[in-house]
Computed example of a mutant assay.
Amino acid sequence: MKKFAYSFPILNEKLDEWLAFAKEVNTSRNSEFTEMHARIGVTKESWYLQKTSTGHDVVIYTEAKDESFVKNFKNDKSAFSNWFRNEVARIQDIDLNAQSVIPELILDWSE
């Protein structure tokens, strides 16, 4: 498995909407979220809410077979993936098809 981390901003005025979205993904739509990850090759994903000087960021940690999960996600045309991308675009003003680029790994230490 390979590890990836990336972040996206959340506007202060959209924080409550984003938290409701995260709750929906983690509860009533969790089985669809799990199925999507199986399709795209992701085995673990964690979301962290980071307060910043300009608002908040969602910091995402993902474990996947390889970096092709980003392309697989962009190409996944399932109803859930389409809903997920539309919600992110609506709440965070981010087009995940265009703006989901994995940052360069600089340090990865383990014991």
Rank of each mutant, 00 (worst) to 15 (best):
V70E: 00
I94S: 04
E87Q: 14
Q99F: 08
V70Y: 00
S78V: 13
K74T: 12
I94P: 03
K74C: 10
S68G: 06
S100D: 12
S81W: 01
A98G: 05
K74E: 13
R90F: 06
K65T: 12
D95C: 08
Q92P: 01
S68V: 05
D95H: 11
I91N: 02
K77V: 07
R90K: 15
N82T: 13
N72Y: 04
F80E: 11
L96M: 15
N86W: 04
F69Q: 00
A79G: 06
N75G: 14
S68Q: 07
A98I: 13
F80I: 05
N72P: 11
D95V: 15
D95L: 11
S100Y: 11
F73L: 12
V70I: 01
A98V: 15
A79K: 10
D66S: 04
D76A: 12
D76I: 12
I94H: 01
D95S: 08
R90H: 13
F80V: 04
V88G: 06
I91Y: 08
F73I: 09
Q92L: 12
D66E: 01
A98D: 09
S78F: 07
Q92C: 15
S78K: 04
S68P: 05
A79E: 15
R85S: 12
A89C: 05
W83P: 02
S68Y: 03
Q92V: 09
N86K: 05
I94F: 00
K65Q: 10
F73P: 00
F80M: 10
F73D: 10
F84S: 05
E67N: 10
R90Q: 09
D95G: 09
S78I: 08
F73A: 04
R90W: 10
D95T: 15
F69I: 03
Q99A: 05
N97A: 03
I91R: 06
R90Y: 11
F69L: 00
E67D: 12
N72W: 02
S68E: 11
S100P: 03
N72M: 04
N97L: 14
K74P: 08
S81C: 11
F73Q: 04
F69M: 00
S81H: 02
S81F: 00
E67Q: 07
V88R: 03
S78Q: 11
N86E: 14
A79Q: 14
F80S: 10
Q99P: 09
E67T: 01
F84Q: 03
N86T: 07
R90V: 08
I91H: 04
S78P: 13
S81Y: 01
S81A: 15
K77F: 10
D93W: 06
A89P: 02
K65W: 01
D66Y: 02
F73C: 03
N97I: 12
